[in-house]
Nucleic acid binder design. Structure first.
Lengths: 241, 241
DNA sequence: GGTGTCCGGCTAACATGCTAGGATGTTACA
DNA sequence: TGTAACATCCTAGCATGTTAGCCGGACACC
């Protein structure tokens, strides 16, 4: 399964895409995990590439223990394939995983938005409105990356308003696969504006404290992405399993 | 937070509740994880108890590496609290965690049953019907443990029919906390029969391939348990955080 | 030329030594 | 007697040595 693929000169990392050092916090293993996660998500480590523990070790200046733990965690998140006594590889994108991530995310967010619509406080509404104002600003200025950050933040806020931290973590983890694929999509013209409008529908339903409407609005919003990704699988089959 | 509690003579494990050795499969760390999980779930390790790595090591005849990995995984599942440079403790039951587990489980199962109602095959229906027949048998014979196993199997089947393996895993993990509490509940008279009836409602909705009815039936079924557990929290506050 | 076998290199998994820091019990002092 | 400083113990986390199994190439044999 993890075949060498067309490897240009050296298979090893080109030296450049070093995941940034410890600009993270927490235990050493946490920081290594965060660094590798970032590198995998923005494709500095390409899908299918081999991960050399020793290279990672002296690139980050740590020993194998935290690296092993980080890789094990990434494997649990299905972002890395560990083949015992053979090697570790960045997982290829898989429509299977992406669909599953979307399923999980949808299940959690629909339940969350329904619950939140009934329990929302004014502070929560304030925060949501503020986020949407910033989104509008980004749209006006064409700041895609920041818009995306706010998008993720909005969804994260709704999940966290349920008070269930673990649920938010799981949703984030599930979304990783979808997000990794999404980053490969060229920005579609008009998509940002459409997303903002969909977000507004969700907020409107929450302001009305209408669980059913909130659920519908969220479902419509989440339904948009999968079809886009399906086209990617046809355009770039080399990135998929 | 992890206070000593009233410790009878020795705080250490009484020697007896050794988690059974490697009757599991997979890597060493997997087996240790499974053994500890079993011990924690059926309360051979009591909530709040200290987990001594070294004791576990020579009880199982392995070194600290696999034990550490297993404990880390249990900590990720919120079944163990690891306090750096202090110790590892079996997590106390927490209504927080239980509610969260129920939330996750409900979110996933509602979405799953809705999806499955639309995509179900005849083989799937066969398997569900067979499971329910066995449940009826257990009810007639008063075989509680087996009934519970079939109950869990039924829910697992519905999740697996979505084709999403990770979702099933997450649901199982989320359910752990609810289940650990549930095992402390005295069997309520009539509960088994009621559960069977609720299961029949779900199956009926699936046979009719009616997503909405299936969703409603499942929601009703899952709604039953939480109130029972809330009473437990009052009767046995020592087990809770 | 095609096929089976052996060998070397590389890897994850496991074992073990080391270190820093929190918890606890004791003692000195008010 | 109550409190605060101290010494000891124990722990998780990290580093590093060891083991066993897969992979790929070479070579012999068919």
């Amino acid at each position: 399964m993890p075949d060498p693929e067309k490897l240009s000169s050296t298979d090893t990392d080109t030296g450049q895409p070093l995941p940034p050092l410890a600009m993270f916090e927490g235990k050493l293993a946490d920081r290594v995990h965060a660094a590798l996660l970032e590198a995998i998500l923005d494709l500095r480590y390409r899908p299918g590439a081999r991960l050399r523990k020793t290279a990672i070790c002296d690139a980050l200046g740590v020993s194998r223990s935290p690296v092993s733990e980080a890789l094990a965690r990434l494997a649990a998140e299905a972002l890395v394939d560990i083949v015992p006594q053979a090697g570790s590889f960045v997982a290829r994108l898989s429509m299977e995983e992406i669909r599953e991530g979307a399923f999980l995310r949808e299940a959690l967010e629909l339940q969350a938005v329904e619950m939140v619509a009934a329990t929302l406080t004014d502070e929560h509404l304030q925060a949501l409105r503020r986020n949407l104002r910033l989104q509008a600003l980004c749209l006006a200025e064409g700041d895609g990356p920041e818009f995306h950050r706010l998008d993720a933040e909005l969804h994260g806020m709704i999940l966290s308003f349920t008070g269930h931290r673990r649920a938010a973590r799981i949703a984030a983890s599930a979304w990783l696969h979808v997000d990794r694929a999404r980053r490969l999509l060229l920005p579609r013209p008009g998509r940002m504006a459409a997303a903002l409008e969909e977000h507004r529908m969700i907020l409107a339903a929450l302001e009305a404290r209408d669980p059913t409407a909130a659920r519908h609005a969220m479902r419509h919003h989440l339904g948009q992405l999968l079809s886009l990704i399906a086209t990617l699988a046809e355009e770039r089959p080399d990135l998929f399993t």
